[in-house]
């Protein structure tokens, strides 16, 4: 059995400007420009003989993130490199938010950050420090479906369901900003979310259904 516990590097926390969107910790074959930095991180771990527990709240290489998710305030100590989506999924355990491409292109990981739809696969958890996150699990109100969720169900706006949480979050933002979207508005508004199953038509219907319901 191998060793349990690990050391986390004292790397500076990337800010938004320097965060490389092509650089994804969990995929094979990074772009060369990103590679040296990550290799250095890896090597600094390899050369270290310190073994510390991931759960240690006082670990100085962790970063404290205070975050509100679905109305609940939480404090987590995470590696600086932890992606927001992995905080949500692996640390908090809200698995409704999905990862489909790790590069901000498919939109399956879309959550609301202070009401704005963002791709949580390319945001660091530390960037969400002090912010409010809403995930698909937090969209319904006291067990009552959000009109967008209802629309997706009514209009068959989903098939395999994998892109659906992200698609719903994007649509929810769209309708916050535009109460009477045209079909073209909706098509343009969800262009950052890819669905491979539905051909989008029933998704458009679902959003229109929700728009109508929200106006009523």
């Amino acid at each position: 059995m191998g060793k349990i516990g690990r050391i986390f590097p004292l790397e500076p926390v990337p800010d938004t400007k320097s965060a490389c969107h092509n650089c994804e910790p969990v995929y094979f074959g990074r772009l060369p420009s990103c590679e040296p930095n990550l290799r250095r991180i890896a090597q600094s771990q390899a050369s270290s003989d310190r073994v510390k527990r991931q759960t240690s709240a006082t670990e100085d290489t962790f970063v404290k993130v205070e975050i509100t998710i679905n109305g609940e305030s939480r404090v987590h100590n995470v590696e600086p490199r932890t992606l927001l989506v992995h905080l949500i999924r692996d640390v908090v355990g809200l698995t409704g938010t999905h990862v489909g491409c790790e590069t901000s292109l498919c939109g399956a990981c879309t959550v609301l950050l202070n009401g704005d739809a963002v791709k949580s696969c390319t945001l660091l958890a530390v960037q969400a420090d002090g912010q409010e996150i809403t995930t698909i699990e937090g969209l319904s109100d006291d067990g009552e479906l959000h009109p967008v969720q209802e629309g997706f169900w009514e209009c068959h706006g989903l098939q395999c369901g994998f892109c659906t949480p992200g698609m719903i979050m994007t649509a929810a933002q769209l309708l916050e900003r535009n109460k009477r979207p045209t079909e073209a508005d909706i098509r343009k508004g969800i262009e950052g979310n890819i669905c491979r199953c539905t051909g989008y038509q029933h998704i458009i219907d679902a959003v229109q259904y929700a728009a109508k319901k929200m106006r009523a």
């Binding site: 999924r89 692996d90 355990g93 809200l94 698995t95 409704g96 938010t97 999905h98 990862v99 995930t135 698909i136 699990e137 969209l139 319904s140 479906l145 969720q149 997706f152 169900w153 009514e154 068959h156 989903l158 369901g161 994998f162 659906t164 949480p165 719903i168």
Partner: peptide
Amino acid sequence: KRREDPRLIQGLATYVDDLQ
């Protein structure tokens, strides 16, 4: 209306990566 949808539209479905 599809009977599989309530779990899918609320983030309550279990895909492989959701297993822990």
